[in-house]
């Protein structure tokens, strides 16, 4: 059965964050006028934080994950800030030890009497928001394919890599279907690479989350993204259910016209393969 491989230090899995950093990502998003680029950078930093925490055993980090962030806009390439800048695949132990900086944030923790109290905690930042240029999606998927061509031969028995792609608009360098199909035809012995796509919109149009077919999709662009989105394996569907999203069997890892809540949930669901040793 695919997507059942245990994730361990000898058989790690891989997450690739593929992020649209085009000029339109500077537009406002949802309530409060936060920019899309700011919101996405914040969610990705939180997601990396959670991945690190999941691998923490005492003061040690177990390298269960390899992580890549690829940005595309005015340029295409690795999007880590700070000392990981320019790095493509980074073991989670290095991600943990090398954030670009540690900010301070307020966090609510239990006060012991049934309430919550605010506490200042250290919050690591690995990537900063960027929004410039066009949407060279084909070039970006090409870089993901190259990364996978390097990673897969060394990890034949691993849980397959998960590519989490976020965009707010159509490709400006051609139809990405071909290269994306090449990506989802790659595999480990545990199954094909997972490619999940989240399209976000500043307009308050109706969002479509994790559809099982194309019937409700409004246009060709939505259908293109649907066709290059892989079905959600069982563990990911359980993760969706845990946060109150019910998905049908065969539901694709695809969101169209997503709002800020969709984006946060997309990264939460997409980084929840089971079977961590």
């Amino acid at each position: 059965m695919p997507y059942t491989a245990e994730i361990s230090r000898s058989n790690p899995t891989c997450f690739i964050f593929l992020l649209d950093q085009s000029g339109s990502m500077s537009e406002g998003f949802g309530e409060g006028g936060i920019r899309k680029a700011d919101f996405v950078a914040d969610v990705v930093n939180r997601t990396l934080h959670d991945l690190v925490i999941r691998c923490t055993r005492m003061e040690e980090i177990r390298n269960y994950y390899h992580i890549s962030i690829i940005g595309y806009g005015a340029s295409v390439g690795p999007a880590f800030s700070g000392s990981l800048s320019g790095r493509a695949h980074v073991p989670v132990g290095e991600v943990a030890d090398l954030p670009a900086r540690l900010d301070s944030r307020a966090k609510k923790v239990p006060d012991g009497a049934g309430g919550l109290v605010e506490q200042q905690v250290r919050f690591p930042v690995w990537m900063d928001p960027t929004s410039n240029g066009g949407t060279p999606m084909c070039d970006a998927f090409g870089q993901v394919r190259s990364l996978l061509e390097q990673w897969l031969p060394e990890h034949r028995n691993s849980f397959p890599p998960t590519v989490l792609h976020l965009t707010d608009g159509e490709s400006t360098d051609g139809d990405p279907s071909g290269v994306a199909q090449q990506i989802i035809s790659m595999s480990t012995n545990d199954g094909p690479v997972l490619l999940f796509n989240c399209h976000v919109s500043s307009r308050h149009t109706m969002k479509i989350e994790y559809p099982g077919d194309e019937s409700r999709l409004p246009d060709d662009f939505a259908r293109t993204l649907f066709r290059i989105s892989t079905p959600l394996p069982e563990a990911f569907r359980r993760a969706a259910s845990d946060i109150g999203l019910s998905t049908a069997e065969g539901a694709r890892g695809f969101v169209f016209n997503g709002d800020p809540v969709s984006v946060a949930q997309f990264f939460e669901i997409g980084t929840r393969p089971a079977n961590l040793r």
């Binding site: 690190v52 925490i53 923490t56 003061e59 980090i61 943990a96 954030p99 540690l102 923790v109 905690v121």
Partner: peptide, 11 residues
């Protein structure tokens, strides 16, 4: 003195 991730878990 714990690294940030151990501090977070210890909390």
């Amino acid at each position: 003195t714990l690294p940030w991730y151990a501090e977070e878990k210890a909390r």
